[in-house]
Design a binder for these strands. Structure first.
Length: 258
DNA sequence: ATGCCTGTCTGGGACAGA
């Protein structure tokens, strides 16, 4: 079973790229982020015509997450994280499908830092950590996948060069400490676990020729609890999708469970 | 040193993204 995450950076303009990738990669479950569209304008008919059932949590102009499932039912378990009823951002959608629990996560970017946006990022991260603690011990496979907006380390596995990103919210010690605390609950970072020595970037900025130079960051992650990790057989990044016409700045990232 | 591109909403320019 293939489970993928893809920050589409606007599903309306990205629909051709998305449909093309779904057809090629045929993920059984695909979690999307940055829909940038409302619930009413989500292209549900096109997704269904491509062979996927879907649930989504949209927001006009910003954010927005979805879970797409091929060849089975999808049941919504949770829409939004607990812990702040005043949070209006669409950033968390949790579902059950194909015998696993999966969450599509769009963690706040947090720039500029310091500032209120960075504070929001850290608070949202704490809410995720609290909720994840209730899932990690499940006997059922659980996968928390999405755009975490955290570069875990300065390693070349995670970033081409940390120097110019040093003050960015994605590399801050507070962001990385929260990431380590989350993973430390007992989650397996699938891409890192199966890292073969080559960089596993998932994002390349649109400007400065960053993709052609492979000047990327690893910020899209798949976290697996123990029952899911026991079945993990492969993981990767569909980099060619990033090199196509009118791409998202992220590439689809996936894991295979036996 | 710097949103240098891109998408969205809108109707031209601001805002957000990372």
């Amino acid at each position: 079973m293939k489970i993928a995450t893809y920050n589409v950076n606007g599903i309306t303009s990205r629909l051709p790229r998305l449909l093309e990738w779904l057809e090629e990669a045929r993920p059984d479950i695909a979690c999307l982020q940055e829909l940038k569209t409302s619930d009413e304008t989500f292209p549900g008919a096109a997704i269904e015509a491509a062979g996927y059932r879907a649930i989504w949590h949209g927001q006009k102009g910003f954010n927005g997450v979805a879970v797409l499932v091929r060849g089975g039912e999808v049941t919504e378990r949770r829409r939004g994280l607990p812990g702040d009823p005043d949070d209006t951002h669409s950033r968390y959608l949790e579902a059950a499908a194909h015998g696993v629990v999966v969450a599509s996560i769009y963690l706040p970017n947090g720039n500029p830092q310091p500032g209120p946006k960075f504070d929001y990022k850290l608070k949202w991260f704490e809410r995720l950590i609290e909720h994840a603690a209730t899932l990690v011990g499940s006997d059922q496979p659980v996968l928390l996948v999405g755009d975490y907006n955290v570069v875990p380390t300065d390693s070349v596995e995670d970033i081409y060069s940390p120097a110019s990103w040093r003050r960015d919210a994605l590399l801050q010690p507070e962001s990385r400490e929260a990431w380590r605390r989350l993973v430390g609950q007992g989650w397996t970072d699938a891409l890192h676990r199966l890292h073969d020595g080559t960089p596993t970037y998932t994002f390349w900025d649109y400007f400065r020729n960053r993709f052609a130079r492979d000047a990327g960051l690893r910020i899209d992650h798949l976290l697996l609890n123990a029952p899911a990790a026991a079945r993990l057989s492969a993981a990767g990044v569909d980099r060619t999708v990033r090199g196509r016409d009118k791409p998202s700045d992220h590439a689809p990232t996936w894991a295979l469970l036996d």
